[in-house]
């Protein structure tokens, strides 16, 4: 088994699925000759040719809109949107079409489409290159949303997303694209969409997170392990999401902290809290704490670290819920 990072895990999943199924194609800006600006599609065009790894004109709605037509026809396109801040140009195509073609056609057509895009801040990227759009899509009936956090999960989840018969937004954690290397099986494997991972077992508090934040939440949990025995739930997918894993953990710990980069109000944390309230309210020993981005735009490089939940803020959140 080779040690690879998240970008390489994406590449490996794409290559294996393309090898296995001729209907799988990759399309997007710079994905061909250049191998993607993050190199996630590196060498794929060489291997599979320009008809299966397609450099498109610079138009996000064009990429997603044509991919919808291709998917309905019978291909399985994996479209790359270079940065998630540019995905909004394709919002109408996703909301009005991809998400509901199965329903509108009474099951005659369906859209096995994956839209891959890097999300989240922390890499001193340019404006609108580091957005957290997951909740918009989790709120969009007909769309699944995947937010992997490790190389192993990335590969297994991406293969599941490609094989899924319905549209999936695959939000890759840009900040940790190359920050984690781990052993990933060379052969194919899948991780089911909708199943969370207990990234760390513990008894005192449940930390719920997903995507790039998982790494920092785990670090925070390790750092305070002498004082607090924290359980970390990495959701992996936020629609559907593994409410059972959250509830079981909260019933055990009685306390919860939710961590995400996206703005607080109407962020996915609100949905998690509502779920806990519905199903485990009486197990709670303290009000749930959210450690999130603020209801502001994500500032540029010089100020972004004030906004993205840091290890320090996560630890403060844990202390607050523990000292109630």
């Amino acid at each position: 088994m080779a040690k690879i990072n998240i970008v390489e895990a994406v590449n490996s999943a794409l290559a294996q699925e393309m090898e296995k199924d001729n209907d799988v194609i990759v399309m997007g800006e710079d994905v061909g000759v250049n191998g993607g600006v993050f190199r996630a599609t590196d060498n794929l065009q060489k291997k599979f040719g320009p008809n299966r790894v397609i450099d498109t004109p610079l138009s996000e709605e064009g990429i997603v809109g044509t991919a919808i037509g291709m998917a309905a026809y019978g291909l399985k396109p994996v479209a790359e949107i270079q940065f998630s801040g540019f995905l909004f140009a394709a919002f109408d195509q996703l909301f009005s079409h991809a998400a509901r073609i199965r329903w509108r056609s009474s099951n005659r057509y369906h859209v096995p489409l994956v839209v891959r895009t890097p999300g989240g801040g922390g890499v001193r990227a340019f404006e609108l290159h580091c957005e957290c759009p997951e909740s918009y899509f989790a709120h969009m009936p007909g769309i699944k949303v995947v937010c992997p956090s490790t190389p192993y999960d990335t590969k297994g989840l991406l293969i599941s997303a490609i094989r899924d018969p319905d549209p999936v937004i695959f939000l890759e954690p840009m900040r940790i694209y190359r920050a984690i290397k781990e052993e990933v099986p060379e052969k194919e494997y899948t991780i089911p969409l909708g199943k969370a991972k207990i990234a760390r077992e513990g008894n005192d508090v449940t930390l719920v997170t997903y995507g790039a934040m998982a790494k920092y939440v785990l670090q925070a949990a390790e750092k305070i392990q002498d004082k607090v025995d924290a359980e970390v739930i990495d959701l992996r997918t936020i629609y559907p999401f593994d409410s059972e894993a959250i509830i079981n953990s909260v019933k055990k710990t009685g306390r919860a902290v939710i961590v995400h980069e996206a703005p607080k109000t109407s962020g996915f944390g609100a949905e998690i809290i509502a779920t806990i309230n519905e199903k485990a309210l009486l197990s709670l020993e303290a009000p749930i704490v959210r450690v999130t981005g603020y209801d502001t735009v994500l500032p540029m490089a010089k100020l972004e670290n004030y906004h993205i939940p840091s290890e320090e803020r996560i630890i403060k959140g844990i202390s607050k819920v523990m000292s109630f």
């Binding site: 044509t66 919808i68 998917a71």
Partner: peptide, 8 residues
Amino acid sequence: LHAVGAAW
């Protein structure tokens, strides 16, 4: 776009 995608 759907027509163009299907034709493609």
